[in-house]
Design a protein around this nucleic acid. Structure first.
Length: 906
RNA sequence: GGGGGAUUAGCUCAGUUGGUUAGAGCGCUUGCAUGACACGCAAGAGGUCGUUGGUUCGAAUCCAAUAUCUCCCA
């Protein structure tokens, strides 16, 4: 046994234990095939990403769950991995190329992908090292990346299967186009932001009635060159006479028809809508219904092209808006420019205005939508907190086909080949397979890659080897799927959670049109989804690089230790509420660890360590006849804590569990039990040490999922486990289990001891308070007198040493009557300080009167309650008894005060 | 426009089916080197639980309005 240093030094301990854990392979699921399994798949971070506070929260929770499962003896598997983050990574690589004056096209596809791989391999994987610093106990040997060979095949297989099953199709559609990344985006990747824009009101001349005009309102005058109609609502009386006629589009000047379409809102603007089928989704639909021509005037970069006329060609869309408005004004066609608030789509990654653009893309009609709803509605998959179910169901109820193709080179290239120089609309000329055609020289592959989310929606089973039979065997998919818990943020409920559910239901069983509840149960990817809050700064802003308001978790670890960071963040993470992060909580976590360290250090310093190898070994060191109320109480509180923490963790109430542990350890164990144990007589010491050892043992076990490093360190320092075994191999167990173990060793806990201890504690607190009031706080030689009934007197006598030591008293003497002395009414009688002559009688009277007033209020409200017949008839007995007890106590106290006041003669 | 969430001490937040005197940490005030811990110990100040109604013997808690903030969807 080594002596414990004065302050806990996390750094050395953390690196030591992490490498020992890795060496031993203890993060891998054991081989006991009878054991229950438990599994989690990590939400794959971006391969080139670095650890954020969000990751800290999310992965600490996963680590708590997996470590707890391991302690419970389950075969626990936490699969780590990363995704390739198509747009983000490609953008970074292209940026690097630009510094060399190159574009990806200069390199060509093959070279570019090579370069991107290189870039990923040098910059990637940092996050794994960071997660290790945090203590994450992932099965690193099982690390998966979405572009790994096996995983890649799984992604392509998914595409091919869904294509065969009729869920995937290619079509010319209006999509969300990102002019910065030059790719289509899914609806989910578009962020709507409120913008201060303008509503331009302009007029087009009626061709058939020169001099007559139709007024049109638009927020986008820069697209008017692509207008191919003006539309009004068929019910709109104002315009009925114009439908079927034409008006003049001012530039390039051309006649366009005035049509009627129900999609036009009568009340918006002027009720007349300019129709630009190439640049607006709603207009596109109108165009299809009325067979309108489609004129593209904005190119893929957001620049106007030659169709817009020579005045506009080559101009950026933002500038074109101003120029178009000016031109309208010059032509006398602009009637008004009004301020207008609207919501405009921005691309999630590049944060630029998304341009609706007509293009050929691949779409997925989602499979198993109804079953996915049922899985959650029927609580086969449970959401924590439950309210996210609404968001999930709402999305599924309004689900739109998913645009899965991206115009990128970094990702999974779509496994579709077209016969060279042949009609692509003829199915004969399309080949879809994972391997590709056998005569590749006659085919050309689709240029696009798949959305990154298309690779991560199969994460729960593709990480376990699917669809390769052999790999599924070695990875034990049949044992670890469905996974147990998923921990993620609600911001990716659509991107990821719902899609994983659909993918699981579609693929984790034979192809089937509709599923039974049993099928759903067997196929669903996880049983519980815990949604974390979003970490914000103290002003409530999201943490972001650009704001610079996000602390680097590694700095925090260096400053406070990984355990401090983990405990701190868990203590402020309320269930499903956003978190305002403040470094103070990490300091508190660090302080907690240091307190734990010192409690153990104190135990080690106060007496020889003995056999701590098991609960029974420790219990055998206890002698029931040396048990006092404090021993009973602390062990009783320990059992309560065991059950409370188990219950809280079963309900994912992490911050509550930290609170429970904190209160028990700091409040009950350190502040009281350890302190009173200092006064124990020599023959009581051995038993008291055993009690301390037992409490510390169970505490370390309960704390281990939260603070793995320090608990492992102390576990070994105090000799709880053999050298070659880890704390993860022991379970904190339950209250019942502990009581039984104690019983068999001849210890039966007395629950009523807790009441006595509460009285003693309150009594001590009162004595300290009255000392402090008279500035005697630091003095230990105060003589107290007290009046008490026989029962209280007996209790005081039994605990005299304890009371004296804790309150800082030289003596406690029972007496009949004391006059003109400061007094305090405690649950064990009225205590007087003997300094009669020095007392400021007036001040003492004021103090007592103040207390009396407060008591009077309490007495009155209790009396009123008890006199109320409805209350006594209807309230539960316990509540009535409680009020009665409170009333009696307060009455006694107030009588005591009145007596004290009477004792002041002046 | 639709939906979710929040509103409790100076700050950040607990408060689990309504029930005994509404709690914690930080901060603040005062005192303290006490058989481990100043990353500590002790004592204390500080709250009309956003507002208004309602249900109830009883409301921070349930219901309805309302205000403010926030998120998501359209």
């Amino acid at each position: 046994m080594t002596a414990i240093p004065k302050a806990y030094e996390p750094a050395a301990s953390e690196s030591k234990w992490y490498s020992r854990w890795l060496e031993s392979g203890c993060f891998l699921p054991g081989s006991d095939s009878n054991a229950e399994t438990y599994s989690i798949v990590i939400p794959p971070p971006n391969v080139t990403g670095v650890l954020t506070m969000g990751h800290v929260l999310n992965n600490t929770i996963q680590d708590i769950l997996i470590r707890r499962a391991r302690q419970a003896g389950k075969r626990a598997l936490w699969i780590p991995g990363t995704d390739h983050a198509g747009i983000a990574t490609q953008t970074k690589v292209e940026k690097e190329l630009r510094q060399e004056g190159l574009t990806r096209h200069d390199l060509g596809r093959e070279k570019f992908v090579e370069k991107a791989c290189e870039w990923r391999d040098t910059h990637g994987g940092i996050i794994f090292e960071q997660l290790k610093r945090l203590g994450a106990s992932c099965a690193w040997e099982r690390n998966v990346h979405t572009l790994d060979e096996g995983y890649k095949n799984a992604v392509l297989h998914t595409f091919v299967e869904l294509y065969k099953r009729g869920y995937i199709y290619r079509g010319l559609r209006m999509v969300n186009w990102c002019p910065a990344s030059l790719t289509a985006l899914s609806d989910e990747e578009v962020i709507m932001k409120p913008c201060k824009s303008h509503l331009y009101k302009m007029r087009y001349e009626i061709a058939e009635e020169p001099g007559q005009y139709i007024e049109i309102a638009t927020t986008r005058p820069e697209t008017l060159m692509g207008d191919t109609a003006v539309a009004v609502n068929p019910e709109d009386e104002r315009y009925k006479h114009l439908v079927g006629k034409h008006c003049w589009r001012p530039f390039p000047r051309a006649q366009i028809p005035i049509i009627a379409d129900a999609a036009v809102e009568k009340d918006f603007g002027t009720g007349a809508l300019k129709v630009t089928p190439a640049h607006d989704p709603a207009d596109f639909e109108i165009g299809k219904r009325h067979d309108l021509p489609t004129i593209e005037v904005i190119d893929e970069h957001g620049i106007l092209n030659e169709n817009a006329g020579e005045d506009f060609a080559g101009m950026d869309r933002a500038k074109a808006r101003k120029v178009a408005a000016k031109k309208l004004e010059e032509l006398g066609l602009l009637i008004a420019t009004e301020d207008h608030d609207n919501n405009v789509g921005f691309s999630e990654r590049a944060d630029v205005l998304v341009e609706p653009r007509l293009s050929e893309q691949w779409f997925l009609r989602y499979p198993k939508v109804e079953e996915s709803k049922d899985a959650v509605k029927e609580a086969m998959i449970r959401f924590w907190p439950k309210r996210w179910e609404k968001t999930y169901l709402h999305w599924l109820n309004n689900i739109q086909d998913w645009c899965i193709s991206r115009q990128l080179w970094w990702g999974h290239r779509i496994p579709v080949w077209y016969r060279k120089d042949a009609d692509r609309n003829d199915p004969q000329n399309i080949h879809v397979s994972v391997e590709g055609p056998t005569d590749p020289e006659n085919w050309e592959q689709d240029e696009d890659v798949l959305d990154t989310w298309f690779s991560s929606w199969i994460w729960p089973f593709a990480t376990m080897g699917w669809p390769n039979e052999e790999a599924m065997q070695t990875h034990e998919l049949s044992k670890f799927y469905p996974t147990s818990d998923l921990v993620t943020g609600p911001d990716i409920i659509f991107f990821w959670v719902s899609r994983m559910i659909m993918a699981g239901l579609e693929f984790m069983g034979p192809e089937k049109e509709t599923l039974t509840p049993e099928d759903i149960q067997a196929r669903m990817p996880f049983k519980n989804v815990y949604f974390t809050g979003i970490i914000r700064d103290i002003q409530g802003r999201k943490m972001s690089k650009s704001l610079g308001n996000s602390p680097d978790p590694l700095d925090l670890i260096a400053k406070y230790g990984a355990d401090g960071l983990r405990f701190g963040i868990m203590s402020i993470a309320p269930q499903g509420q956003d978190i305002l992060f403040n470094e103070d909580c990490v300091a508190q976590g660090r302080n907690f660890c240091n307190k734990l360290w010192n409690a153990c250090r104190f135990r080690q310093m106060s007496g020889e360590m003995a056999d701590n190898s098991s609960i029974e070994a420790i219990a055998k060191r206890m002698d029931a006849k040396f048990f006092d109320e404090d021993d009973h109480a602390i062990l009783g509180q320990l059992t309560q804590t065991l059950d409370a923490v188990n219950k809280q963790l079963n309900e994912y109430a992490f911050s509550m569990a930290t609170q429970t542990l904190y209160n028990f350890f700091w409040g009950d164990f350190c502040d009281w039990y350890l302190e009173v144990s200092k006064t124990k007589s020599p023959e009581h010491k051995a038993t008291s040490f055993a009690v301390q050892d037992l409490v510390i043992r169970q505490l370390l076990l309960m704390l281990h999922p939260f603070t793995p490093f320090i608990t492992e360190e102390l576990w070994h320092l105090l000799g709880y486990g053999p050298e070659d075994s880890f704390i993860q191999n022991a379970s904190p167990g339950t209250a019942e289990g502990l009581s039984t173990a104690l019983n068999t060793c001849g210890i039966t806990l007395k629950p009523e001891a807790l009441t006595t201890v509460e009285k003693l504690r309150e009594c001590v607190s009162k004595l300290r308070a009255i000392k402090a009031q008279y500035n005697l706080g630091a003095k230990k030689d105060i003589n107290f007198f007290y009046t008490a009934d026989e029962a209280d007197h007996a209790c005081i006598s039994a605990h005299t040493e304890k009371l004296k030591s804790m309150a800082g008293a030289a003596s406690l003497t029972r007496t009949d009557d004391v006059k003109e002395a400061p007094a305090s009414i405690t649950p064990l009688g009225t205590f007087y300080i003997d300094l009669a002559s020095a007392v400021d009688i007036e001040a003492e009277k004021t103090r007592l009167n103040k207390e009396l007033e407060k008591l009077k209020g309490l007495i009155l409200s209790a009396q009123k309650k008890l006199e109320n017949k409805s209350f006594t008839d209807k309230a539960p007995e316990q509540v009535i008894a409680g009020v009665q007890k409170q009333l009696d106590e307060n009455k006694a106290k107030s009588e005591e005060i009145i007596k004290l006041l009477g004792s002041f003669t002046s």
